[in-house]
Design a protein around this nucleic acid. Sequence first.
RNA 1: GCGCCUGUAGCUCAGUGGAUAGAGCAUCGGCCUCCGAAGCCGAGGGUCGGAGGUUCAAAUCCUCUCAGGCGCGCCA
Length: 548
Amino acid sequence: MKAGVIGILEGALEEAKKAGLISTVEIPAIVLDKPKKEEFGDFSTNIAMLLAPLEKKKPRDIANAVAEKVAAYPDVEKCEVAGPGFINIFLKRTFWLKALLDIAGKGERFGQSEIGAGKKVQVEFVSANPTGPLHIGHGRGAAVGDALSRILRKAGFNVTREYYINDAGRQVFTLGESVRIRVEELKGKAIEFPPDHYKGEYVRDIAREYIEKYDDGGAGAPGYQEFGTSAMLEMIKKDLEDFRVGFDVWFSEKSLDDSGKVAETIQDLKDKGHIYEAEGAVWFRTTDFGDDKDRVLVKADGERTYFASDIAYHRDKMERGFDALVNIWGADHHGYEGRIRALLRALGHDDSALKIIFIQLVALLRKGVPVPMGKREGEFVTLRQVMDEVGTDACRFFFLMRRPDAQLDFDLELAKSQAPENPVYYVQYCHARIKSIIGFASEKGINVPERFDEKLLSRLEEKEESEIIKHLGAFEELVERSALAMEPHRITFYLMELAGLFHPYYNKTRVVTDDPELTAARLLLCRAVATVVANGLALLGVSAPDKM
RNA sequence: GCGCCUGUAGCUCAGUGGAUAGAGCAUCGGCCUCCGAAGCCGAGGGUCGGAGGUUCAAAUCCUCUCAGGCGCGCCA
């Protein structure tokens, strides 16, 4: 919708230029606003005020000249100049009705665009260590990463979702040890459990499973570490599956090491002169590329650091030819950003290809009272627990109700309440309600018309109806902007607004009436709302139920 | 001490440099003989943490400052 108006404006500016009213060659980018007040029109632009200093003329004079040209376009009802020099454009109702025709024609494809132009984007998210179950914070990252991937795809990007498995190094070793100790314990040995090991109940479960399968100690028995890691990974995969989060690639840290890529990367940096040795360790001079301090790649004891794997991983990512990389990290990792950017630049890449989204903490509440968390106490709340309690739909929706970098209060009781204050149901109810209306009409032998035109739709004369239609028409641009800004929460807010327009309309206006033409037009409008709600919820990975 | 994030209504939060800053919840008062009341209508509520600066125009950009969170390992 908006693109069309920008076209009109560009045309008008060109005409003004030809008529000698404007002399500036480089016209600033056109910004179209949706004014807050309807007296300011459907769209408003500040272009005259931006041109004023360049033209050395009064903004209002320029605005008047442009407005006159704009007003001549057939889709334009009128065009006014207001305030310091805003150009306010009022469009004809028929212009908006095109959105309804569009939605009816495209159905679930409505909202799709080509703005991504098939660019390859990798979204790496969750990437939790396979040493314990996913907790609530991972869940938020999973919801954001998954929704973002869906939105990017809708906007025409070629998306790869990837999970980086930290299956090498200290932590998985400790997991293996934890399993071993529990196995021996279960067999009756009294062993003091080391405090820095994983003491969650799930480790006992894994130990029990191990004893059941391999206690005979057959030749094929895997090591504790290997067994524990794969058991944890299976559990994580199952959690994610039930959370409706899928991945295209599961990338193993261990495989990087095995294939020699870590050593290769260090050598590469050495060849480029970014490596030095000091105090028995091998350092990467990241300070040459904006980092706070240099970083160790190989410790004095000969062991590689986690960062050594990470540089190999990000080098590998770049070599796979992505146009953009998105990393979704917990906010506690933001200290890592500098060194990863340093790496990309050291390798000669443009680090602006990398976008890191930091996920802030989730504060779990129950009726407003904080639920205690803390990994050390072994009483951290898992994604599984929350999912089971409030359901996947509510859980995902709540995670996507806030900007990722803002802390989130998640109230369990609110999320599962079937009361009106629960926003998940507010949106889903809108969809179910419309399906019910369409069902009611069809029982009376009235169906959503197969064939229709602008004349039929022009029966939608209520103010609420045009507001809804305008909002529907903004959906495509919303998806684009949400994709480009990489902000899934915009979709959530849009849907709450759309439902907030529809419910009052429904309460006030009868859809199924004695007037067949009016009924047909309103059924079409309703179905369009349902389509957009369903499409929007699909981007969030939340279901759009026909009945609730 | 240094770095990053966040300060907007009682609470939780929206708000690509634009016009009189919005929504939900909470509070109070109303609406089901009629397409789904998981809904609707109405009311009250603000020094956009603070101070300077840039601009025709600042919640938005810059500087300083205050408050909260997080990070500053040869841990991952």
